[in-house]
Nucleic acid binder design. Structure first.
Lengths: 84, 84
DNA sequence: CTTCTGCGTAAGGCATAACTTACGGTAAGT
DNA sequence: ACTTACCGTAAGTTATGCCTTACGCAGAAG
């Protein structure tokens, strides 16, 4: 049941904010952290959860890590909703 | 943001099981509790969360309370997913 | 009227999740 | 080469969520 991780990932408000921020454009961890009321390590931890839920993907660019939205997680969620 | 409550509601495995059980047919609290590894009060508390997320509805029938699936919560969730 | 059934709520314990600060490692800049 | 920037991870604290038992109330049953 992959959708389980998607639910728990998006159940947290901070993670939803991060996820929605990436809807605009891919961003680095630092950029994501500046618009959040939590520390940068906290953002890193949240991104890890989002990544394991197939909601975001990372692309290392030299020093930075560029995060972007990944559709797989949402697709799994949609598929689950279709069963109702 | 009504979808927020939907996420937190369906993030819990027990609540998902209850919700999926109601997919078959409307059931009372006692009936729902017999198929769950948790106590009946726990089921009541979970149903309360599901109800405030617009995922289930209740219809008191004399002594009992018959719970059934309510589509509103899922619709709000689907609508949220459409924004991506 | 008394008893039993079905259910919600309160209170408290306990596990987990989310946050912080501190640290280390790699790439970029000077 | 040294310093700075960017980020992940570890360790510890605090908050939150889920569970239990205990209790009380309304309707059904006798």
């Amino acid at each position: 049941m992959p959708y389980a991780e998607v639910f728990t990932a998006l159940a947290d408000p901070t993670r939803r904010h991060l996820f929605e921020a990436l809807r605009e454009q891919p961003m680095t961890v630092g950029e994501l952290a500046t618009n959040q009321p939590v520390s940068r390590p906290a953002v890193s931890q949240h991104l890890k959860v989002l990544e394991s839920a197939n909601l975001v993907s990372v692309e290392p660019q030299g020093n930075r890590r560029l995060y972007s939205i990944k559709r797989d997680g949402l697709d799994e969620l949609k598929q689950y909703l279709e069963s109702f």
